[in-house]
Design a protein around this nucleic acid. Structure first.
Lengths: 146, 146
DNA sequence: ATGAGTGCAAAGGCTTTGCATTAGG
DNA sequence: CCTAATGCAAAGCCTTTGCACTCAT
């Protein structure tokens, strides 16, 4: 998905929820795009000093609600955000239990689709209305094990 | 694993870290066993009124460190804890995005082992020292969709 | 005895919220 | 114009921590 497509998709998602695509929200999406992976609020504020903390929190909540960004919970105290999968592509996370940082990775299609089938079956058995799955690896990243 | 085996395993794990298996810790393990699934601190305190909040926090941290319990992060603000997989069996979580509650489920062996292989391969490629994986379904539980 | 474990209360720290101001449509 | 969005600062809330007391070895 190209940069301009992302912009339009986000705009559409926001409009659908009667929300405005303000300049602050554009800068926020831009920071997430620039980050290229899950970012903490602190990191976002560093990437774009014009953003204000409380607005970032509020806007991330809204953007998550409309499905434009996704929140990732790691083991540390900092929530991380990245562009939603619609805007990038389906992937998973390598979560470092030492520094808390998160990297993305993907599975081969075969494994992924097999997993998907199994998950839907399990969800159905539990009468659970499944919205998404999250598959993360917990361990120690190269930087920390060095 | 029988109840008495769990006790012994926890005792062993604690001893290995020069920690005592005090009565408070026994009651805590007992509450987790009784709960039969991931519990919030509040729920633990309700299940056993003799437990004190600060000790529960401290002991859960220690029990997690020695590998006797596991922490689960959901989308709400409450950490949940359950007995570690050594003491139960490998499983995954159905996380309700509405009420925050968590239920357990399992995958068939074939899918699980295939997934495991793929994950180790991905971790290796990233130079990531993998400790565990977590696979959760996010959605709405029967109780909340009713 | 002597250090680990506990309990109470206070402090920490990420996140949320109240309210006045600004800007989008 | 008029409501949504923003910014600042203060408040919230789960969790952690300091300190004195208790218990196990």
């Amino acid at each position: 998905m190209t940069a301009i497509d992302i912009e339009e998709e986000v705009a559409t998602l926001l409009r659908g929820a009667d929300q405005r695509y303000t300049s602050g929200r554009r800068r926020l999406i831009s920071a997430l795009k620039k980050g290229g992976g899950p970012l903490t609020i602190t990191k976002i504020l560093e990437l774009d000093g014009s953003l204000r903390q409380s607005s970032v929190y509020r806007n991330l909540t809204i953007l998550e609600e409309v499905g434009a960004v996704a929140r990732i919970d790691t083991r540390d105290d900092f929530a991380r955000y990245e562009l939603a999968e619609h805007l990038t592509e389906h992937h998973h996370h390598l979560i470092c239990t030492s520094c808390g940082d998160v990297a993305d990775f993907s599975l081969d299609n075969e494994t992924e689709s097999r997993l998907d089938t199994a998950l839907h079956k399990a969800a159905k058995a539990a009468g659970f209305d499944i919205a998404a799955h999250r598959l993360d690896l917990l361990g120690v990243c190269t930087k920390c094990s060095a």
